[in-house]
Design a protein around this nucleic acid. Sequence first.
RNA 1: CGGGGUGUAGCUCAGCCUGGCUAGAGCACUAGUUUUGGGAACUAGGGGCCGGAGGUUCAAAUCCUCUCACCCCGACCA
Length: 502
Amino acid sequence: MSSAISPTRNDDYPEWYQQVIKAADLAEASPVRGCMVIKPWGYGIWEKIQKDLDRRIKATGHENAYFPLFIPLSYLEKEAAHVEGFAKECAVVTHHRLEEKNGKLVPTGELEEPLIVRPTSETIIGESFSKWVRSYRDLPLLINQWCNVVRWEMRTRLFLRTAEFLWQEGHTAHATKEEALAETNLMLKVYKECMEEALALSVLTGEKPEHERFPGAEVTLCCEAMMQDRKALQAGTSHYLGQNFAKASNIKFVTESGTEEYAHTTSWGVSTRLVGGVIMTHGDDDGLRLPPRIAPKQVVIIPVIPKPENQGSVLEYAEKVKSAISDEFYNGEKIEVQVDTRDMRGGDKNWQWIKKGVPVRIEVGPRDVSEDKVVLYRRDKEPKEKSFMTIGEAKGSISDILNQIQANYQADARNLRETYTRSDIENFNQLKEFFTPKNPEKPEIHGGFVLGYFFDSKEVADKLKELKLSVRCIPFDQDGTEGTCLITGKKTKIKAIFAKAY
RNA sequence: CGGGGUGUAGCUCAGCCUGGCUAGAGCACUAGUUUUGGGAACUAGGGGCCGGAGGUUCAAAUCCUCUCACCCCGACCA
């Protein structure tokens, strides 16, 4: 049984990932090192994710705003841990003009204070917050922005880690620690719901251990998803920043009783990395499989034109099917249908749409025109598995079909994560064995998540690094029993998730 | 920043070691013919400053020097 994508997932998972991106026409490398060009189909997915998440962010009382791309260098210096975390990967603007010298453009007009291109916006938004917050009546301040950020990463992979990426970053200020922590938890829940309901991912939520925290945060919460190669993908994070950034940016307010206090702030973000997560969660050996909720088109109609004289009637019929189906609703919106009228062979078209992961394909040909029928294919079934039905039946069932596909993908993702999460690993040797491939020459897909006892210390992080493992999170659900840390053997009541990660 | 590698058609590459006809193949592209509920076949065609600069030579994609870019392994990476 040959597949549309070569190599297959089992043969070479990283290469398969690259090939799916190419075959589905999602994105490509740009002339600028580490940056990507997001093509219409890939950007369409991001727009759907944005739309869903933006609605959820607004529904929880947040407002969108926009802050500058450039941040004065001195702002970054204000928070010590933040400097440590981001200084090494900042793009820096030092000049503001170009002059021609010997036919070459050279930078001149050196800036008195260099600007950095935002790697994240805590400091520049903090500056605004300090002006906006005077009284407890100004709190909570609930702001979100959609933007791009730059982190000068050494090694990049399309969507998963690029030098520039698109994201949203929420920034809020609160009067009390309790309120800020509640916000941090609320936004993590919003992320989880968006990822599970819209992207059909299955995520585990919990808290990062100290050494994995966001630079400057007191608490970092995260959503961790399992990819089909059983590695973890950090899909979103939500941070309680304590008063660290409030002190750095001077965000103070007068309380009801008249005293002056620093605000408690939070920040939270998800990025275009989610698109990578969708590819690696739902893709198969024939290419991408898109959950209907985030597919730029849910249905594509492919006219079958065996003879030129059929063209007029078939195309007309295809439009008729389109208008019937696009009148239907899915998830509260009209179904998005495209008729693929391109002048090329039907087989090519068909496979292109399979590789792009469009949830439902409908073929209409001369025979269907006379019988008022269509042929319907689902991306969650085999490529050749077809259902014959009338236009009326297609119209009546399309919404259900999309719901089923969404549910099937969701179930697959949940099954994968549950199947490969082990909670019976008791010591370091077992851990090591679980994460060691049987074939070191050409490692097979192996490992998964291990839920095991964990005593937070530097020693753990270092020893895990040898196995290329990390503590993904300390899950919220803890049974409270006592055991010995898988790494150090120390007694502890905390369990964590150990895994290889992207 | 260390170690290794690669730059030749839109893409994937051969040719380089051992210098020598007009620089090649597959895919993609264009046209024609046949085919058609399907990832078609044949024929013809377009497309290259062989990454850049310098050198050796009668002669350089090929040898030498320099340079630039990218890739892989490390280091780095909420």
